[in-house]
Design a protein around this nucleic acid. Structure first.
Length: 528
RNA sequence: GCGGGUGUAGCUCAAUGGCUAGAGCAUCAGCCUUCCAAGCUGAAUGUUAGGGGUUCGAGUCCCCUCACCCGCUCCA
């Protein structure tokens, strides 16, 4: 674990040193959960998004049995009518009331507490002792508190202040007409706290300690539309781009002559007020998503789900996530969100653990039906072939752009102690921020005069750097850290036979090609 | 939000409560250099996170604030 943490630290350091990723507002000490992309990072991220848009939208793959289907894009506003988020369930359901244990300081979801208490070992034992005798044996309870209790539930009132609690229990039993009616659940609150006011839902399942009041954690950022800040002007920054697509489903149908099956794609920012952003850019409060909502007939939903799951997994592999760190994992039925019938995650094993890059879900007709019901608009679809009107099912491949970028960075990061410059970034050439560099071996003897036109020629087609300063080794090393796949070097031999060397980033090998063929060399190795 | 840790140059780190806060690496300039962070010379770089206090004197001790990191929680 120490070693893997070190790897992440090295990656973070390289990303800062070379200008991939900076902490947002760093001059003011930073701000948690927000990150900036530097000159190399913005090129890398743009390449990732461009590759997605090119491969998924403009040149979408053929469907099962080579079905050609339609794929279009949208770019929706970040702030939408708040009713969108009421319909989608985000206002009500996208928040988790949390409670904190005053004793052990654990943070717990309020809706899971009562259940967890019932299942806890200390609760089982208390219950058993209580029911063993009639009336309950208080001495036995007292000795349990001293021994087992102090281990299992050190935060429990009965354990912390046995005298006070046992007295309170004795009084409660004396008051009861029939001790047998003093069912465990009815008086158990006395066991839990000296005030007797706590119930099983206010007790820490781990240590028996008292919890704070439930606190609302709505993960949506709030803002106000217009200058007046009151409840009527409250709005939200979108927590996902998907709802913009659902809200525009009818607009797209009515304006573009598309037919089902139909995919609508969007890349854009989304915002979630995470309780605790962690793991570098992985869990950010402001992040970018690429999402497809793929609308189809309900009877074909399973087929399209499998299709998209495999297409999306393959896309990551083809862009360089070749190691066994990339995994495709089907969700277990009990893991599924309320809106999803089936779901698979594309996961990457980062140094900080296996984490999700993208989820592919069968969302059924949940979202469209929610918007039909809330807005009163008819969002159903009439299929001319089938002569049938229906609410489409939706397959949703929803990926995190920044998470993918971090995975590509992590996979590309390579340490080779046999090289003079051990650290390098082996980006897929399609993703590499800079595609090539041009160096005169020395900054004299007419070499710069040969190199500069080559650089200017390449620059018209590909991001390219020119560098004549310092030793050649240092220049190669800098390009290795930037992940530049190819370096062209002009040397003395260039003046004699017109050839330059091409140096390969991954193995530092060199070949000579004619100086007129540099651009052609790149075109053969870079798509588009 | 709670607990723990950290905060000195771009990076890694020094500096017993005591002189003008130093060193290596990196950066930049010049020289040299015909293929892998080479060599020589030189330069630039700090509100010691911010604020307050104790003291003759604070990077160092105390308090507050801020930020980041690690747990609890999270899923694009």
């Amino acid at each position: 674990m120490a070693a893997t943490a070190d790897v992440m630290d090295k990656i973070v350091a390289l990303c800062k040193r070379r200008g991939f990723i900076f902490q947002s507002s760093e001059v003011y000490g930073g701000i948690g959960g927000f990150w900036d992309y530097g000159p190399l990072g913005v090129e890398l991220k743009r390449n990732v998004k461009d590759a997605w848009w090119a491969d998924m939208v403009r040149n979408a793959p053929l469907g099962p049995d080579n079905i050609e289907f339609q794929m279009v894009g949208v770019d929706c506003s970040i702030i939408m009518n708040p009713k969108v988020w009421e319909a989608s369930g985000h206002v009500g359901g996208f928040s988790d009331p949390m409670q904190t244990c005053r004793q052990c300081k654990r943070h717990l979801r309020a809706d899971q507490i009562a259940d967890a208490v019932q299942k806890s070992e200390w609760h089982e034992e208390l219950k058993r002792i209580w029911h063993e005798a009639t009336p309950p044996n208080l001495d036995k309870l007292k000795s349990w508190a001293r021994k087992r209790g102090s281990k299992l539930a050190p935060g429990l009132a009965l354990v912390r202040e046995p005298g006070v609690v046992i007295d309170a229990l004795a009084r409660a039993l004396a008051r009861a007409a029939d001790p047998r009616q003093s069912a465990f659940d009815a008086v158990s609150n006395v066991l839990f706290s000296v005030t007797g006011r706590q119930s099983a839902s206010d007790i820490c399942p781990h240590c028996g300690g008292e919890l704070t009041e439930p606190r609302e954690f709505n993960l949506m950022f709030e803002t106000f539309v217009g200058a007046m800040q009151d409840s009527s002007s409250k709005a939200y920054l979108r927590p996902e781009t998907a709802q913009g697509i659902f809200a525009n489903f009818k607009n797209v149908l009515d304006s573009t002559r598309v037919k089902l099956p139909l995919g609508i794609a969007q890349i854009g920012k989304a915002f979630r007020n995470e309780i605790n952003p962690r793991n570098y850019t992985f869990r950010s409060r402001e992040f970018e998503q690429y999402e497809i909502e793929f609308f189809c007939h309900p009877s074909e939903a399973d087929m399209w789900y499998e299709f998209w799951r495999d297409v999306r997994h393959r896309w990551y592999v083809e862009l360089g996530l070749r190691s066994d760190k990339l995994r495709l994992r089907e969700h277990e039925p009990d893991e599924l969100a309320h809106y999803a019938r089936t779901c698979a995650d594309v996961e990457y094993d980062f140094p900080f653990g296996l984490s999700e890059l993208e989820g592919i879900a069968n969302r059924t007709d949940f979202d469209l039906k929610a918007h039909i019901s809330r807005s009163g608009k008819d969002l159903s679809y009439f299929d001319d072939q089938r002569k049938e009107r229906f609410v489409p099912y939706v397959i949703e491949p929803s990926g995190g752009v920044d998470r993918s970028v971090l995975a590509f960075i992590t996979e590309a990061y390579t340490v080779d102690e046999n090289r003079a410059s051990p650290e390098l970034m082996k980006f897929h050439p399609r993703l590499a921020p800079t595609k090539a560099a041009v160096f005169p071996l020395v900054a004299k003897d007419g070499l710069p005069e040969i190199a500069e036109p080559i650089y200017r020629d390449i620059k018209k087609s590909y991001p390219c750097q020119y560098d004549a300063k310092q030793s050649i080794g240092r220049r190669y090393a800098r390009m290795d850290e930037a992940g530049t796949p190819f370096c062209f070097t002009i040397d003395g031999q260039t003046k004699e036979d017109g050839t330059v060397t091409v140096r390969d980033r991954d193995d530092a090998s060199q070949i000579r090609i004619d100086k007129s063929r540099c651009l052609e060399y790149l075109r053969d190795r870079l798509p588009i």
